[in-house]
Each structure stands twice: as C-alpha cells, then as structure tokens.
Design a protein around this nucleic acid. Sequence first.
DNA 1: AACTTCACG
DNA 2: GACGTACGTGAAGTTC
Length: 938
Amino acid sequence: MAFGKGCHLHLIDGSAFIFRAYHALPPLTRKSDGLPIGAVAGFCNMLWKYIEDAKGSDAPTHAAVIFDKGSHTFRNDMYDKYKANRDEMPQDLRPQMPLTREATRAFNIACEELEGYEADDIIATLARQAREAGGRVTIISSDKDLMQLVGGGVEMFDAMKNRAIGVEEVEAKFGVGPDRVVDVQALAGDSVDNIPGAPGIGVKTAALLINEYGDLETLLARASEIKQPKRRESLVDNADQIRLSKQLVTLDPQTPITFTLDDLEIREPLVETLLDFLNRMEFRTLTRRVAEKFNAEPPPAIEITASTDAATPAQDAPPITPESYVCIRDAKTLEKWLDQARARGWVAVDTETTSLDEMQADLVGVSLCIKAGQAAYIPLGHSMGEDDLFGGTARAEGQMDMDAALALLKPVLEDDSILKIGQNMKYDFKIFARHGIRVAPIDDTMLMSYAMFSGLHNHGMDALSDRYLNHQPIPIKDLIGSGKSQITFDKVAIDTATRYAAEDADITLRLWQQFKPRLHREQVTTVFETLERPMVPVLADMEMAGVKVDAQVLSRMSNAFAQKMAGLEDEIAQIAGTPFNVGSPKQLGEILFEKMGVEGGKKGKTGAYGTGADVLEDVTTLEDVNPQAAKLAARVLDWRQIAKLKSTYTDALQTHVNPETGRVHTSYSIAGANTGRLASTDPNLQNIPVRSEEGRRIREAFVAGPGMKIVSLDYSQIELRILAHVADLPEMKQAFKEGLDIHAMTASEMFDVPLDQMTSDIRRKAKAINFGVIYGISGFGLARNLRIPRAEAQGFIDRYFERFPGIRQYMDDTVAFAKEHKFVQTLFGRKIHTPEITSKGPSAGFAKRAAINAPIQGAAADIIRRAMIRMPAAIAGLPATMLLQVHDELIFEVENGAIDDLIAAARATMVGAAEPVMKLSVPLVVDAGQGASWAEAH
DNA sequence: AACTTCACG
DNA sequence: GACGTACGTGAAGTTC
C-alpha cells in the first residue's frame, strides 16, 4: 500500500532505546561465551513490548527504527566541538551495536541509518515526507531535540512514561511552540551535546526573550534594547555563536535517503527468523514468550559447554520431568522412600495446604525428593472436586490416613542425622509443628539465596528455578486458578497435584545441590548458618504464639473514628462547596489547586497534583491568602489521620484475630528486606502507630493474658552506635561510653554551644543530621526535612564532616568498595549487593545512598537477629514468651512474678549480642518497659 | 496493576 | 540553568 492519507507512520529512535536498555540493566553476558548482551536484551524486550502495545485501535500502518551511523556528521564539519564532551561509548556496549540492527530486522521492522547524518535528521526527513503525503506521524522518543518536529500531524510518544508529547507538552517544556523550539535551544545551548548557546541564558530566559521579540533574528537585531545588562551583553557579544547553535540544533529535513515511505509498511514478524535470533542470543524468557504468542515451537536451547559458571546445572542432573514423579498411597511405599532419606542423610520436603496462612492452613499433602529427578507426593487431605449432597466434600480415594503417614514421617523429620531441605522452611515448619512434629535439622534454599544474592533478585522458588535451573515450574494458577474462582489445593485432582508438588521438592533439592558448595565460594556460610537458618524455628515459635489483641477496644475505636470522619466529611464538603471523595487525592487536588485557586500545585509524573501531608501542611499556613483552602487542608489532614488509623489498624486488625487462638499471628519474612531486616506481613505489626498521641492508643489493644504483662526491650540509638564504631568517630564513641545525650553532644560540637546552654531547637537539628548521615545525607534532603534553605543545610553538612572526618572517609570508602565489588558488607559478613552502583543518572544517587546505609542498617539487623537466636536458651525456664520484633525492639509476654528476671536475662542477651565474634568499641544500651499493654510497655 | 499516601524503625 | 535526591519496609484506597 502506498503511503498517503489515513496512513500512520511510527518512527522509533533506536539509539534512545539502546542507551536506555544499556543503563537500565545490569551488565548481562551471554552464558555460553560471555559476550556482553544486556543492551541487546533490553532492546529486544522494548521492541517486543512496543509491538504488543502498538496493536491497539490507533495501530501504525508504517514503522521504522532509525539509528545513528558513526559519530561523524555534517554538524562536526560546522563545529568541531559538537558533542565533543561525550564520553566514549562503553567498551561492553560497542559490540552490541550491530546486534541491535540484527534484532530490528529479526522483528521484521524496517531498520534505517545514513552515513554523515544523525537519526534525528532521518526522522525529520521522514516526518516531512509523511506529512506532505497527508499521513500522520508518531515519533517514539522523549528526546527534546526532536520536539521541534511536533505539530501538524506529528506527535511524539514517550514509551517509558507511556505519555504522548504534543504541542502542549512541548510548550510546557520550552515555553514556546514547536516552531520556535530551535530558537530557544540556540539561546539556551546544551551541555550534553556541547551546544554553546548564549552564556548565562537558560531555557526560561530564552523563552521569555523569544516570546517578547517573536523570533531569534528579530531578537538579535534588537538585542541592544534589552534592559538587563547581562542578557544584553550575552546576546550582543555572542550573536555568531548563537546563530551557529541554531544551525546545530536544527534538524535537516532533506537528508538524501535512498528508500521511500512505502518501504516502511508494517510486516508481520517472520517467526522462525525471530526465534532463531532470540535463541542465539540465549534470551530464554523472551524466546518462550514469543513462541507462545505465535503458537510456535521454541527452538532447542543452545548447549552450554565452555562455562565455569556455577549457574550451569550439574551435567549429570536429568531433566525435570513431572510425569516421572511417584504418588505414594500406602505405608510400604512410604517406608521405602524414607529409607532412602535415611541412607543419604538428607531429603527435600515440601507441604501442600489449603491456605497461605500457616495458622489456618490444613495439610493436604507432603512431597519428598531424595535425588534430582526422584520425587514423590503423599496425598493426605484431598477431597473430591465437587461438593456432595450434604454440602460437604467426600474424601478422595487412594490416600494414606493422615495420622498414619505423619507417624511414619515424624521420626525422619525429627532425626538429627537427616537434613531436611526446604524452600521457605518456616512455612512447612509451622504446618508440621501444628501436627506435633518439630522439624530439625533444616536447610533452606530461599535463605541460602538470600545470604548469597541479597540485592540481586528475589528468592522465591520461581525466580530461583528460572535463574539457576533454567526451568519454569508449573504455575500454581494452572491448578487452582486465580481470583474469585480460585479453589483450595485439596480440591485439586491427585495426579495433577503429584506433578506440581513433587516438582517443587525436586527443584528445591536441585537448588540445594547447587547452592551448598557455592555458599563457601561466596564466603557467606557463616552468615547463613548463624544469621539466617537459626531464625526459622525462633520466628516460627513467635508467630505461632501470636499476640493477644482486644478486639473490643479496637471496635470501639473504629466506631468513634467513623463518627469523627463523618463530621469532618460534612465540614469538608461545606468548605469545598461540593461533596467529594476526601480519600481521592485526584479530586482533592483539583478542588484545592483549581477550584479554590491555591497556587504552587505541583503535578507528579502521572499529571496528578501532589497532596501529601507536607503539601497540605504548607496550604494550612495560607490563612491570610486563602483562608478557605487553609481550613480545608487542615480538615483533610485530620480526616486522613483518622481514616488511616481506622482502615489500616482498628478495622483491619480485628479481622486478623485468629478465631481459634483469639490472638493475632503476624508472619515475618526473613528474606524480604535487602539489608537483613525482617519484614512483617498479614498483618504488619512493625508499623503500629506510636508517633501521634491518637495513634498510640491503638497499642492499648495489644495486651497480655491474665496474670501477665507486656515487656518491651529496645536498643538505644543502635544505628548511630554502629556508625560510630565502623566510621571510627572518637568523639561520638566517647560520648556513648559516657552515656551522654548523643544528639546534644553532636549539636554542641557542631554549633559550639555548651551542653548546659543547649536549646531543643539546636538539638533537633543535630538529631536530623545524625539520622541524615545514616541515610547517605544530601543537602537537599536535610533542607527538606528541617524546612530550611538548602544552602544552610549544606553548611551544616560541611561542618559535620569537618567535625567528624571519619564520616566522609566511611562514605567514600563504602562507595568505592561497592563500585569495586558490586556489594557492601556488614560487620558480621552479610553481603548486600548493589548492582546499580555503576549506573548513570538518578539511580546512581539512590544506589550510593543505599550502599552507605546498608552496612549500618544491616549490622543493626544482624545484632538483633543474634539476640533473638540466643533468646530461647537465655530465657528458658522463665514463664515468658518472645512475641514480636520491631527492628530494634523485642516484645515479650511475661508472668507477673518473672518480669525482673526476664528483663535481666533478655537485656544481657541483647547487650552482648555482637559478642564474641565482634567486640564493638561502643557499648550497646537496652531500655526496658512493662505494662498491661504495649502502650504502657513502650 | 500502578500510583499515592502514610504507618513504623 | 535545570533536575532530582535523604535509608529500609507493608497496607489501604483510588484510578485506570
């Protein structure tokens, strides 16, 4: 079809795709030969996503990917410094360039480039031709240099933000229409491309001038009339340079291309060619996806031969074949399998249940694996798929009696000489514990992965299997469905369940065989054995104990909150002049910043006004300017606080009270947070309110049983103490040894104020700085936190570094270490990987601060883990139970008569938790509290 | 499912 | 001249 009216041309900025892919991904290499391949992988994924996304109602009729060719263009002949400040192309990107062209052709998309011209010029030429032919054009790019082309049927599309860029967006960015963009760019220049422009004039000023004088030539002609001396001189003195800049930024719409628009017509991918290319690149996931999409058979995976990578599955491991798994239906067969486990000394174990909540889940079956490929499933609680006449479910045929099977399993699961291997063993541990079996000893592939790879990827079975076994397990959704029609596992047919469940045990064993030797190579065996694995029984016991929560107290609070909210809603509707959903930030933003005319509303990346608490607090100060809005903001803040307390706490907590135990049982994820911290879920009991008076009252509902009290012990300033130790800060260490107020001491050092003349405001500032340092301080962040000018904040930081030179050293050393090794380490050897540390752009800043914070937050996490692991022995014999951990705090339930003993024993354990492996140069201090509720104990 | 907001250390 | 930043989490509600 000839290009013409009604046609729609997509032009993809290929170089932008490549660089985005390169910087977004870690430096991946092809497994078989180590060829750098990350950018190609990202590029292919982006192209694939583009193709999928472009299939909508506004689908293109023609499309092409346009690349830059070489680095020398006609602009270099005009100006030899053009793009001269660009870094050389990274070494590992260079060999990927031709592959991106090959990839484009493999997807059967037109692929064009032209010697001596930039991709932007070709795009300009094609856009012009398409417009002249009466068609429409969409440029897939967010490059500002292309914005001059927008308008009259040409628009841009930012594929990352999923956002169209039309005339309005261009005007928002440059302050002028697309036809004057080059004038503004000529004046403002561009440090990235080394366009000189007019010194001292940026986009804002340039737009102002162009809007006033109409265009660049008029402006330059009348430059002498400009009042501001700086601007006038800059324009008068640099007129030639500005004209040159304009030539440099203006795209050439007449490049001598040798193809026509008709050549760019959309073509279906040639499936075989495409799959062959993807397979040669060894992109497993994408190959599979593409094959699935076209219902094609994926080509046989490339054989990996010359690899020393431990990720290569053992040569002798048979392929994973779910059809070969055994279903154990009688005692004799089970005994045979258990004998195998006894003979080998290990067995991989996995349980299937009816729920993810271990406290409510019923056991449905157990799977075992004793050797890669040799796995079995023991169905124990399967029912018929359909309900019977009486609304109950009949037990499925061919299953062992549950008690009989567990009686055979128990001696093996509790046998000291047989290692039980699991993936996320805490889950199975709890299931078995509810049947009177304490599984030990254990290994856990999830925790092994966490010890070795924290920060690199998550540690779920699907991710590990895909990554380390090159195998995608049967998705659970295939068995039980999803959403409303989801069924419980006991309803799954036994033969289907056998394939799924035994596969999990098989995968777990294979992962374990691969990980076990690698723990040593990665030098994290001690971390795994002293900080990860022992947490499993400790946390399982805490979770099973649960904490008593008085639902009546919560219910009363919920009712009170509901009344208060209703009152506030009425008041808010009245101030706004119209009722609206107060819980909708979008509606609130529109009312505040449009209807009520509050100025300075800032839109986020989705185009919605920000209405966070800090923004609303600023609005409340506008009493004189806009009293109605100030009042509205204040009421909304009140409403928000109560709504949060009600929905997240007083309402939700009630639903988490277990009907059998009358207590709330959280679940801790051991491998959730990168730094070694735990995370609490379902419900999260690590973020129960405390900072506000109203919120703190929720803790009154966390109570002790009759004759008992809640006891709380928390580390005082543990992260600052660790910082003082690792960064070697003599003044701070001394202050901790003397038991001084550390924030007051910091303030005194920094602001030269004697301790006896300290004010709370100065101390507050020092406290914010102390925290800031732990987080990888920046002037901007501190300024925002303290609500002071940025320059002042920067002054504080400079002074802090001057007074505590060890800090700067620590930060520099940590970042340098991270850059060299791609991980950082805690005092106890825990590794936290920081793959982003070498990336460019904003993510580099994030990675840096995370790298600075991780060893400190991580060491604190290590220390409380050590205390928790020792705690059961330390308090054995006392009528006390450890219930909760909140990062630096442990909460116990203790009989009244044993409170002092408990505090003494637990405090000693916590204070000495770093020893004997680590002798800190600062003391650890533990504060204790007690009471009828958590509110009183804290 | 993504985004925004807000609770904690 | 402009941009975009404090570290680590989980849950609820709205919007698409």
